[in-house]
Design a protein around this nucleic acid. Sequence first.
DNA 1: GTGAGATTGTGAAAAACTTAACGACTTAGT
DNA 2: ACTAAGTCGTTAAGTTTTTCACAATCTCAC
Lengths: 223, 223
Amino acid sequence: MHIEQQKIPQATAKRLPLYYRFLNNLYNQGKMRVSSKELSEAVKVDSATIRRDFSYFGALGKKGYGYNVEYLLSFFRKTLDQDETTKVALIGVGNLGTAFLHYNFMKNNNTKIQFAFDTNEGKIGTEVGGVPVAHIDDLEEKIGEDISVAILTVPSSAAQGIADRLVKAGVSGILNFTPARITVPDHVRVHHIDLAVELQALVYFLKHYPLDVEENIESDEED
Amino acid sequence: MHIEQQKIPQATAKRLPLYYRFLNNLYNQGKMRVSSKELSEAVKVDSATIRRDFSYFGALGKKGYGYNVEYLLSFFRKTLDQDETTKVALIGVGNLGTAFLHYNFMKNNNTKIQFAFDTNEGKIGTEVGGVPVAHIDDLEEKIGEDISVAILTVPSSAAQGIADRLVKAGVSGILNFTPARITVPDHVRVHHIDLAVELQALVYFLKHYPLDVEENIESDEED
DNA sequence: GTGAGATTGTGAAAAACTTAACGACTTAGT
DNA sequence: ACTAAGTCGTTAAGTTTTTCACAATCTCAC
């Protein structure tokens, strides 16, 4: 299916969605061209890094001119598979889960949250942000072949148990917002986003790193 | 004030809060000792990396034995300034902001959200997760010398404007959850956490990277 | 057309980070 | 006391990522 160009560094891959969104903004503003320098100021990534990143996909720009916004955008749309929607499930309709559900993902995005799950009877059967909420007992049933990615916004004590069920149900990627580090088989990819850690890391940097001649850091970045 | 040991790599610094939390868990479980291998399995970081990380702070372990949990914990407590609480403000009491306010930060943490701000009259004067909500017009007044860090969970259109005000009010670190990339003076540190980007990056990795012989990746975070 | 100015794409160097490997030391069992 | 097994701390190697710096090329105003 996918021919592995396989050269793109992970650091680059992580920046692609960011580039994509800003290019989209520029396009909507009617901008026709953009230089790596301009883009650099907008996304806060060094311009040489941007050029290097783009160059992995070939020569997308023109010397002395910059990049054609529309062309670049359509190129990224293909590359990021923006045409093909990835279906997502969200587990745990608490505050964080609700925030996600209200996030307008379909705009500029190739992902759609198809179902949300919770244990709270009051929420089941309702819709949050246009997404139906089902009982978590129905997880296996509703996650068909379709859904390959899950967002985990449950209490951390429930994280590993749910993760096991998700994996068994066929999910191959999990975005884990709980502080628990979950264990999964090798073929499943987990990205951890730990709010408390992010805050503490920021505080640590403020206290221990020279404040003045310092660039910003992407969380994950992993950021 | 702070003697700059200044050798600790940023990648290491980002992992410290993670180590700290897991050590705390172990301690609460009554565990007396831990090896880099055990810890590795818990936090999903290579054991050599853990040993290397710890070694920046000196010889904390014993050969043939491992690390004494209590000692390590007390060491990290000092290093991460866990005794000295950093005061934080949160701007934007939406779903995401509310999630943060309910997060029990004080537990295992050196940060305390002192004030929250919003424009919604219904919320002002109430408490969310024990934190008083004030009107955003009072931001400058309430952020005294005290508060050095802000969490930004406002709509992205408001992000830059608020950021400017925060900087003027003396904040030196901003944890930005909006998709907007904000511009700040050099002496202010911003960490971006972009939920949509995280999700898209995960999807991209799933589609383009060999699924089987692959390690997990920490977001951020930078990222 | 021409030339000054802009900007890319990339080779090469540097920096940052991770991992392997192992000597040295510790523990614990006998 | 001796030994086998375990584990650290670190040197060195490997990998990944960023950055510099500049030739090549293009644009645009005149």
